[in-house]
Design a protein around this nucleic acid. Structure first.
Lengths: 226, 226
DNA sequence: CATTTAAACGGACCTCGGTCCGGATGGATC
DNA sequence: GATCCATCCGGACCGAGGTCCGTTTAAATG
């Protein structure tokens, strides 16, 4: 099964989908689809809002990003913020969108070992390292952007990553229940876990990365890397 | 190292503690210590509030448990609810307290395979099954009771369970970084994950339980059970 | 241009979690 | 039983997220 095909059939709504689906070229499968065409003023305000939000994060941390504050900083009405981004989570997620797309692009078409070309085990190891690094960089934003627990795993961005892991696992341990094992692996990369281990318990990122490598080795039954 | 000793030294605040610590008998290590002695009226109100909250959960689900509603239902002032339980999370957690204590007691002193007496690998399998069952029963409450992501893993109740898993892993894979592997295992049992897989994706609890057994086998390097 | 309309705007308004503080009260002390 | 004070009580109050709706405006059409 082709990667793009797998990703597109494994992503859609909850009940596992059926339609075999046609073709690749659908790179940004799981990200907020570009609002097709925004009216000029809307686009301008959207840009203003993102810029204002970014500034607020830089100045006061994610906690300082109040919807009213953002609206004010962008000289825009509060309602506009909600219409454009839905809710606070949506706004914060939009702030992370660039790096999320970058990661996805690297997974799908970047150079090995993250992208295609390397053996699946190595891709899986590189995946964890990349996500760990990315989480560490933007931890407060990542944490603040999480929706309520009941929905966090429904979020397209997360599902794309989980699907990617599932895809790699299918290659490595075809007899296992890869969706479940993928979920277990992803759990380790959850921003909340990274925050707990790294910030609260003071573990180094290197240690977390080693933990990931080890975990991958155990789950896939491959030996530790040389 | 004795279990109680391990649990008590591995639990305290973030920076890994040192003091070797004295002795066992400290069963309820990680649960909200009983407020020593409550004034008569305070105790009465506390009971009323828990009863009212329980009723509201039963009637309208966890989402229907508003602090003001609980206060009203218990014929008590809103401030009283917060003084007693700190915040909404505290109230919901108190509602889960009984079952949490029960689980802890079973782990520490219950019959095998959950309690001591069985081989560690079997205890670990039983642990997952027990947590999975418990989560499934009280999913909405478990989800609603979660504090903000940045703190959820600091919660004593969670730390006790994680420590338990770490303890078992030390016996099974002494050379691994057991704290990290334990965290990975615990991730699979997170209510958010259970909710996603069971409710949203429609996987059966049996399937999740099998996934756990398999995960344990992989992480510990023991074969699948007979 | 004039017209039309879907889309965007903005801020009043609502709810809910959480805080504060002046007043009431349980219970220990004498 | 009178006194005293730590504790508790209650509800006014605040801030932040989220909704609503009457008004404005971009831009497509003729």
């Amino acid at each position: 099964m082709l990667y793009a095909e797998f990703m597109s059939t494994s992503l859609p709504p909850l009940p596992p989908p059926e339609e075999p689906m046609g073709e690749p070229e659908l790179l940004e499968i799981g990200l907020a689809e570009e609002e097709p065409c925004l009216r000029a003023d809307a686009a301008r305000n959207r840009a203003r809002l993102l810029e204002a939000a970014g500034r607020l994060v830089a100045e006061h941390g994610a906690a300082g990003v109040t919807m009213e504050a953002v609206a004010a900083a962008a000289s825009v009405g509060k309602g506009t913020v909600f219409r454009r981004f839905g809710d606070r989570t949506g706004l914060l997620t939009a702030l992370l969108d660039h790096s999320a797309r970058q990661l996805q692009a690297d997974l799908i078409g970047g150079p090995p070992p993250l992208g295609p070309g390397a053996p699946s085990v190595e891709r899986l190891r590189a995946f964890g390292a990349a996500v760990l690094r990315r989480s560490a960089e933007q931890l407060d934003l990542q944490l603040a952007a999480q929706p309520e627990p009941a929905r966090k795993l429904d979020h397209p961005t997360v599902r794309v990553l989980t699907s990617h892991v599932t895809y790699l696992l299918r290659d490595l341990v075809p007899d296992a229940d890869c969706e479940l094992q993928a979920q277990a692996l992803m759990g380790f990369l959850d921003p909340a876990v990274v925050h707990h281990l790294h910030k609260r318990c003071g573990m180094s990122l290197d240690r977390l990365e080693s933990g990931w490598i080890d975990l991958v080795a155990r789950v896939t039954g491959t030996g530790r890397p040389a």
